[in-house]
Write a protein that binds this DNA or RNA. Structure first.
Lengths: 205, 205
DNA sequence: ATATAATAGGACCGTACGGTCCTAAAAGCA
DNA sequence: TGCTTTTAGGACCGTACGGTCCTATTATAT
């Protein structure tokens, strides 16, 4: 992969993270990546959409290496890894003061309805993410209660984090994310075999 | 408030819910509301942004009457009201097969960075929403553990729902929302005075 | 009856955008 | 040396968009 291509993808990633995909014009990308003009850009990418797809791919790869990686650390207790992962999400958002948001969630909300090509790719991202959490939960099985539903729990974790990051961005306040991260850890701990249980969903007559 | 104005706001609400604010053009709104032309539209609204603000306002009012209302029902047990509210969110999404998403979360993700005017208005929406949940939690105080943090819990509930709705929209699968709603209810139940329970966040060696 | 607001419809403007095309100079490689 | 890729830069096109302006006609309320 050529140097120039990476440069373009990096520049585009920043712009898209800051302003969204639709609001980022090809000319903006050209300026940010210091290209000579449109033809220079279209020498590397066949369309703006293709650029977007590749940026999304890269974002997930980065996230997989830098964030999700801890989920696979074999020397650490699985449930502890999950806590560390949640902490890493908080830390990542802290870098931008909670202003950046999730590169996946942002695109999802922006394009899920309008652009099928993006929708399926974002769906795949969430699925791969969920799948890594499921593996971890499977590994943590001996420490978990028998009736833990890994599919449901993995989705819950992702939804809570995505929602938290979104609210944090709107309120411009990291405390929102920190609080939710704290509660999310408690919710996970509640599934431990040693957690003295927990009522099933209560019914009020 | 004139009839025509409402008509325009309703049409715009649908379009914005379907395609987002940016992707909804004034001409689209004109066509959907069967106006005669641009001047007809600008007779009622001074700009597209103003239209957007009013639509957002209306969406929250509707949500407050139709969704949040149950939180205030004085004859029902407070915690049960919370469960009913969560069910109503699920039911509302079910109407569109989970495709609609949250009118607030969608706008938030689309415009939080790009458009300060919307950002502050969306922030206000989340705040009003959280405040209603906080009131309910205060009312439910006798049934809750003493250390329940209403601010934190109310944010958690909103974040989980917003994240759930977003993921559901991406996956086009109501089961996602249903599962998360189920877990969310369990999490809330965990704060009950009668819940035996529950480890504080675990520390590993 | 008269003023005001609502409806109708079209011309127009400036700007931005994604994308194409064309020419030509450097750079890299065989 | 030649051939291909990369860089450079500009002209151009069609379309879409938010917004303004202008002219009329029809309702509505005072």
């Amino acid at each position: 992969m050529s140097d120039r291509r990476s440069q373009i993808l990096d520049a585009a990633a920043v712009l898209i993270a800051e302003h969204g995909f639709t609001s980022t014009s090809v000319d903006d990308v050209i300026k940010a990546a210091k290209l000579s003009g449109k033809s220079h850009f279209y020498h590397y990418f066949k369309s703006k959409d293709e650029l977007g797809y590749e940026v999304l791919n890269r974002q997930f790869e980065r996230f997989s290496e830098r964030g999700l990686a801890v989920l696979r650390e074999p020397m650490i207790d699985p449930l502890e890894r999950l806590n560390l992962f949640i902490d890493s999400v908080v830390a990542l958002q802290a870098e931008s003061g909670g202003r950046r948001g999730s590169p996946f969630g942002n695109l999802a909300a922006e394009l899920a309805d309008a652009h099928e090509g993006f929708r399926v790719r974002i769906e795949a991202v969430f699925e791969r993410w969920a799948s890594q959490i499921r593996s971890l939960l499977w590994e943590a099985r001996p420490q978990l209660q028998d009736d833990v539903d890994a599919v449901r729990l993995s989705r819950f974790i992702i939804a809570a984090l995505e929602g938290a990051v979104l609210m944090t961005r709107v309120k411009r306040d990291m405390a929102v994310l920190e609080g939710i991260a704290f509660d999310l850890k408690r919710f996970i701990a509640m599934h431990g075999r040693d957690a003295l249980v927990v009522p099933v969903v209560r019914t009020f007559e």
